[in-house]
Simulated scan of single mutants.
Amino acid sequence: MGGGEWRAIESLQNAQAKRWLSLTETRGIKKHGAFLLSGRKTVPEALKRHGVRFTAVLAAKAEDAEALPLPAGIARYAVGRALFEMLDTNGTGFPLLAGEVPEMAAADFSKPPKGLELLCALGDPANLGALLRSAAAFGVSRVVLMEGAAHPFHPKALRGGANAQFEMSFLRGGGWSALEGAKGPLVALDGAGADMTAYDWPRDLRLVLGEEGLGVPPALAATRLAIATTGRVESLNATVAASLALQAWYEARGKK
């Protein structure tokens, strides 16, 4: 379809509509290798900085997208109000972008990391998105999704990530046993670990973050670090704890 042409899709039974609707869940994202991005701020910013990543724009009315910096070749769809509201899971009322999920190769733990490589098993997409936002802010460019991790292009993860997903690459890590014999420093956040403030952060390492509440397996051979608190709460949210660790690494890197 040409750059300036708009195609109207009203029926929920339309094949393209069904495909888009499936992208509101992880199963559909994996099946089609595609995602939907929403947000009054994130959509214009994503088009400006990463326009080539998107294949289509979806709007309730064509005029809603007139002010957007749409690439010449992007497909344009004016979708029915009922369909649009089902696709707009975050309720923004703003045009949506459809894009392709990048290939995610298997991580190679036999090679040492370069920079900080974040290994994550967070299963909640909103938490994962928030973590990715912090990771991008502190200079992380590679994220390894361990078994059980949420999909980084789930609508909730995209909302929490605020376009961080487009600043980094993703790898598949498998189960925790894949880390046996991993080369290079391996650091895990653990409430029973050593005080993080005393740790001499190396420039290159793998930072491991387990599932919320479960942490990482006790048998994992890693340097374990804890974040000092007042003790008024049992533990920090995993995303908050990881963000503090990422900031500590970032500040240490600037001093080396």
Rank of each mutant, 00 (worst) to 15 (best):
T24S: 14
R142P: 00
G123E: 08
G91A: 07
R76V: 03
G231E: 02
K183E: 15
G4M: 14
L36E: 04
T26M: 13
W201R: 01
L97G: 03
T92M: 11
T229L: 01
W201L: 07
A238P: 03
L119E: 03
A188R: 03
G161M: 08
P218Y: 07
G33N: 12
S141V: 13
E103D: 12
A182L: 12
E66V: 13
P113Q: 00
M196C: 00
S235P: 03
S243I: 11
G4T: 14
F109N: 08
G28R: 11
G4K: 13
V240H: 09
A17T: 07
A219C: 00
R253H: 11
P202G: 06
N163C: 12
L21H: 03
L12S: 15
W20H: 10
M1V: 11
T42L: 00
G3E: 12
A106Q: 14
T230I: 04
R172W: 01
L116M: 13
F35S: 06
L96S: 09
G174A: 10
G139E: 03
R232I: 11
G28W: 04
S134F: 05
G213S: 05
S141Y: 04
A75P: 01
A130P: 01
G99T: 09
A150I: 05
K256Y: 01
A17L: 05
T197G: 01
G173D: 07
A192R: 15
D195P: 12
P71Y: 02
A252H: 07
